[in-house]
Amino acid sequence: MNILKFLVSVIFLIYCFSSDLKAKNLEIEITKNLRCLICQGQSVYDSDSEFANSLKILVEKKLNEGLDEKQIYAYLKNKYGDWILYDPGFSKNTYFLWLLPILMFIFGGAIILRKVILKKKKL
């Protein structure tokens, strides 16, 4: 029983620790996926500009208000447009962006499959 108690407490500790870790990570994770609008190709996380710093505070505030990642993205998208999000998402603007590489992959696979299978038929 003692071992069980010990394990439970370890799991609890790890759980506490990791939830703390998560809170910090989420803010970094979110700001890494935002473009700093006044910089040249930097994310909000990477940048030290005034805009980026105010956005970092904003994200933290929204997280404290209890919004989750998606809600924050949606909020910022509403305010600043698609340009701010590094993850283009899947919408009617980006069907081709996401599907074209996948189609290429399938197409390439089909060519190879055909070469290999053709041989088998000949034998």
Binding site: K32, N33, R35, S43, G81, D82, W83, I84, L85, Y86, D87, P88, N93, T94, L97
Partner: peptide, 12 residues
């Protein structure tokens, strides 16, 4: 084409 600006970054 559509004058819409999107970013394609690391997540993609």
């Amino acid at each position: 084409i559509s004058s819409q600006k999107i970013s394609v970054g690391p997540p993609f």
